[in-house]
Write a protein that binds this DNA or RNA. Structure first.
Lengths: 131, 131
DNA sequence: CTCTAATGTGTCGTGTTCCGATACTTTTCT
DNA sequence: AGAAAAGTATCGGAACACGACACATTAGAG
């Protein structure tokens, strides 16, 4: 493959991911959340830790520093999507849980995302499988 | 598949993409560019437009508004990676080209990215192919 | 047991990036 | 020729992530 094609492939791959991301941002905002808030809800819902993930665990999943996750939790909590609970076993830890409305809005967002991801899969498949 | 698993899958998918993105940002910064600047170089190099892509074309590839691309071009140009050239055929258009040093740094970044993307491919493949 | 180090979370100020609104230049169309 | 459209640029503002720092709690060395 020529070098030009290599660059073109890379660009298409990135642009495809960006379009998905942009679509996802819009979907979140149409439901009244920012992208980061949506991702925090998903990080909580997708965690397997009993009682909910800690701030640090969410930070890992979001690939941000812990204090960024803490700030994000502030804003998301203020909107009523999540709640904090200090761990009873380890007083340093703070566990996050979805509120009923948080659970509901994430359900709605997830429904449309599963659909869109099927479409993305079709686009990404030839890009990631080939060199 | 249980709903819990669905959420877990979604989370893993996103986190995988975020980790790649974060890795890529670091790589760019180690070469003295921001993530956005790196992506602009790639958008220019990966374009098939003779004489280089216009501001608008780059904006499309980066999935940002055109004035964002214009601002980004300012900063990237100031660092000497790209150059502007007013189109001779249409005086409204501004075409972007890589400078020699821009070409070189993108080459270096691309080399490590091709490697990393092979690794990502292995992670993404089971995620995008399965429901 | 106590005191220090390590761990987990939170606060503050800063920088980057993106956007909307707006303006300017050039081209197109009638 | 003149109005509308297209392409680019400027300016002010908002979200978010970070580093540096501070605080509380737990773990471990002695």
């Amino acid at each position: 493959m020529s070098t030009d094609e290599q660059y073109q492939r890379l660009l298409v791959f990135r642009t495809t991911l960006r379009r998905f991301d942009q679509w996802s941002r819009r979907a979140a905002e149409e439901h009244g959340l920012t992208h980061a808030q949506h991702q925090m809800l998903l990080a909580i819902r997708g965690s397997v830790t009993p009682g909910g993930p800690t701030i640090g665990e969410v930070a890992d999943a979001l690939v941000v520093r812990h204090h960024t996750a803490s700030e994000l939790a502030d804003r998301t909590q203020q909107l009523g999507w999540v709640e904090r609970a200090r761990s009873t076993e380890d007083g340093r830890r703070v566990q996050l849980r979805l509120t009923p409305s948080g659970t509901r809005v994430l359900e709605e967002l997830t429904a449309v995302h599963v659909e869109e991801l099927q479409r993305l899969s079709g686009l990404l498949d030839p890009l990631v499988s080939q060199p």
